[in-house]
């Protein structure tokens, strides 16, 4: 091992082998994946998402939600993800076609969000929860995202988008209301769009969950 060129060739080749397998292959293959036609609705799978949800994905990224919430359902029987209700089926590559950044996540400090839009379809619930998680789940350790909301004096009619149902110490003072910022609205639109429960041929739902 006293010949530098030989060492160079060796470190080049070992590295290249994995580079081809774990970088070039997914880039060329998964990177070119296409949506499938949806015969039932005439649309595509995975379904397209609204512009607001796409904007919300940026808020999801800048707030760092991914550090506590995964977005992947692992297969059975390797895991109990499906039995625990994270989703009706395993998530597969095509599910992430709509994502600018695929937030697969590595932690479940909080629950998995692959299907949060199906589990909690209520916009106001999400606003309440983001404003102060403990108004809906008193044992939650999620931080409050109050900074995405504005507490303002009610002038004339209350705002139509004001957050309802805030109680206890988190409720606004009498005559005041809590309204979501554009960012908060976008984030909730993104969360509601998280529904990986459509059918994909490559990921059949297990018959006995």
């Amino acid at each position: 091992m006293n010949k530098l060129p030989l060492i160079f060739v060796g470190i080049f080749l070992t590295f290249t082998s994995a580079w081809i397998g774990l970088v070039a292959y997914p880039t060329l293959n998964l990177g070119e994946m296409q949506p499938l036609p949806d015969e039932e609705t005439g649309g595509v799978l995975p379904p397209t998402t609204s512009g607001l949800a796409v904007a919300g994905q940026k808020v999801y990224a800048s707030s760092g939600c991914v550090y506590c919430h995964s977005q992947q359902v692992r297969w059975s029987p390797l895991s109990t993800d499906i039995a625990k209700g994270l989703g009706p089926r395993q998530t597969v590559a095509r599910d992430y076609l709509r994502e600018k950044v695929a937030f697969l996540g590595t932690m479940r400090t909080g629950p998995d969000l692959s299907n949060i839009g199906a589990r909690q379809p209520d916009t106001n619930w999400h606003h309440q929860h983001l404003f102060e998680p403990r108004t809906v789940t008193d044992w939650s350790i999620m931080p409050s995202y109050r900074y995405l909301y504005k507490t303002q004096k009610i002038e004339g009619q209350p705002s139509s988008d004001a957050v309802q149902g805030l109680r206890g110490p988190h409720a606004p003072k009498l005559g005041y209301e809590v309204v979501p910022s554009e960012e908060a609205k976008a984030l909730v639109a993104y969360l509601l769009s998280l529904k990986k429960n459509y059918k994909l041929p490559e990921s059949p739902e297990p018959s006995e969950p």
Partner: peptide
């Protein structure tokens, strides 16, 4: 190795991101 790693990951995930399905593999590589 380090500049090769850093350049690959930045090009494919930050500057010209590849499609979502491919990202996780490159990220963890």
């Amino acid at each position: 190795w380090f500049p090769w790693l850093y350049a690959t990951a930045n090009i494919l995930l930050v500057w010209q991101p590849v499609q979502g399905p491919a990202q996780g593999a490159i990220n963890w590589w």
